[in-house]
């Protein structure tokens, strides 16, 4: 099968590579573009570890072929920091609350909650749990993740 040239805007930078149609977006990001921050957990759309932002919406990058994303904008965990490498308030709250242990689901959790806060800066606990309902974590029992998002929301509230 022939390879397709695929061009994505990843974290604001245009990046290109070649891949067969059957290469998923997450494999393309990791293996072709070297963006290894996004992780693979199940490859069948259940665990959410591979979550990325596609044109502003969180999606699972194992449930999309890279060729389908050609011409689209992707944000990965590597794109959450500010231009000078400063942590986003959400990242900082994840750190402050130790909202992880092994760190494997963390990129997906950050993507899910980052997009939640963009749409709903003042989520309650139920809304936070709903937003990460498709992201499995085996270390934390989710509590410190919820706390981190609550802390971020509180900061947003106080700043506004």
């Amino acid at each position: 099968m022939s390879e397709h040239k695929i061009t994505l805007t990843v974290n604001g930078r245009e990046m290109s590579g070649y891949a067969e149609a059957r290469v998923t977006l997450v494999d393309f990001l990791r293996d072709v573009l070297g963006q290894t921050g996004t992780h693979i957990g199940c490859e069948h759309g259940v665990c959410g570890a591979c979550s990325v932002v596609l044109d502003g919406k969180p999606v699972r990058s194992c449930l999309m072929y890279a060729v389908m994303a050609d011409g689209h904008e992707i944000t990965t965990v590597e794109g959450l920091e500010g231009p000078e490498g400063e942590l986003s308030p959400l990242q900082d709250a994840f750190w402050e609350n130790h909202a992880m242990q092994c760190g494997y689901c963390t990129p997906g959790m950050l993507i899910a909650t980052h997009t939640l806060l963009q749409e709903n800066p003042y989520p309650d606990e139920a809304e936070i749990r709903e937003a990460i309902g498709g992201n499995l974590c085996r270390c934390t029992g989710y509590q410190q993740i919820v706390e981190a998002v609550q802390m971020t929301a509180k900061k947003i509230r106080e700043a506004s």
């Binding site: 959410g48 979550s51 596609l54 919406k57 969180p58 999606v59 699972r60 899910a112 498709g134």
Partner: peptide, 9 residues
């Protein structure tokens, strides 16, 4: 239906 992320696609 599914989750936020699957409903987005």
């Amino acid at each position: 239906v599914g989750h936020t992320q699957t409903r987005n696609r």
